[in-house]
Design a protein around this nucleic acid. Structure first.
Lengths: 189, 189
DNA sequence: GATCGACTTGGGCAACTGTCCAAATAGTAC
DNA sequence: GTACTATTTGGACAGTTGCCCAAGTCGATC
């Protein structure tokens, strides 16, 4: 092999990314420090700036990796449903697994917020979102969506999901089941 | 008068609250420091801890004051509309004034996020939200909402609004007008 | 053996943080 | 004048921050 140290380096880099994902959820985007992420990854503080130009760069890379995987998985699951109603049911079931205060939800909201202050993050997160909306829209169309604007409905759907997560974080009694009616009505079911 | 200094004190306190509201939007909840907020308010750093036990207490008080006023105004405007359709139109028009990256929107999202780590903030912000949802639900009912669960619809509506703000922050091309269709359908119009 | 490259270490640096507090200020009451 | 209260000042304190870097480790190659 080329260099064994290069392989170890890749592994270290990945551990830093994983640690960053976990820590953004726990202490917030701005609460992740060089030493904290290094300790969590089990490496010396200096390693962080060897693998990444700055702490922000590490957080951007880690966050985008996470949301990219999340959206891909979400779109793939939707694609596996033969009817829109089935998809909505699956979606609400899936949504119930995210309390709004779980690590994944917190990371997503942190990224929305950080993207207003980190231009590169905003651009790339937007790309992921635009792609996702398009995939949902074509899924709707292929399943016989009867409304005029499938992309509009997909956009509304994606925004609603994040809004519900946001409100669920605040309100443990948030009635997710009660959302099924309005959601189905919105999609013409 | 009792004490002129007490009156000056109240004014200073208010300037600190105003400065905190502005700064949370600009630099984020975690980015507001003692000296930064003092400088913005035009006072010495020590004043902050004279009027508030901690910087967090200042931020909580400032944020809750802002969202309380915002939700009150929003509910009052809705109440002034005779029909649900009118209310939705007004809402979308109002929403277009919030880009998602404007100070008010950013403050709201910052508060959602901070509330996951500041218990007192979560409890009181939730109270404001629950009250707001109830006001919207009774507004819907009084205007002849035909669905089964007005509170569910109000909850979905409030969550959707915040979700749209979140997504609009990321995507300047977010088509608000295209949301009118799905929204009206959701409310049975 | 020696040499090379990639990676890792741990400490140094200036700048910043929240909180505290002795001292100063100023308006009110006697 | 003195006494009292409320507010304000600016510096002190220990702790943390991002980033940097000389020195070190370690496996691969000659």
């Amino acid at each position: 092999m080329a260099h064994a140290s290069a392989q170890r380096g890749k592994a270290t880099r990945q551990r830093l990314l994983d640690a960053a994902v976990a820590l953004v959820s726990e202490v917030g985007w701005g609460g992740v420090s060089t030493r904290l992420v290094a300790e969590r990854a089990g490496v010396a503080p200096g390693v962080v700036h060897y693998h990444f130009p700055s702490v922000t760069d590490l957080l951007v890379a880690a966050g985008l990796g996470f949301t990219g995987d999340l959206l891909d998985g979400f779109a793939a699951e939707l694609a596996a449903r033969a009817e829109i109603g089935e998809g909505v049911d699956w979606m609400l079931g899936e949504l119930s697994r995210y309390s709004g205060t779980d690590p994944a939800s917190l990371l997503v909201v942190e990224m929305f917020l950080a993207s207003t202050r980190v231009p590169e993050l905003r651009v790339r997160l937007r790309e992921q979102l635009v792609t996702f909306r398009a995939r949902v829209a074509s899924w709707l169309t292929e399943r016989g969506y009867r409304g005029e604007d499938a992309l509009g409905a997909a956009t509304m759907l994606a925004a609603s999901v994040d809004g519900m997560l946001l409100h669920r974080a605040l309100d443990p009694d948030f009635d997710l089941a009660a959302m099924a009616g309005p959601l189905r009505t919105m999609l013409g079911l």
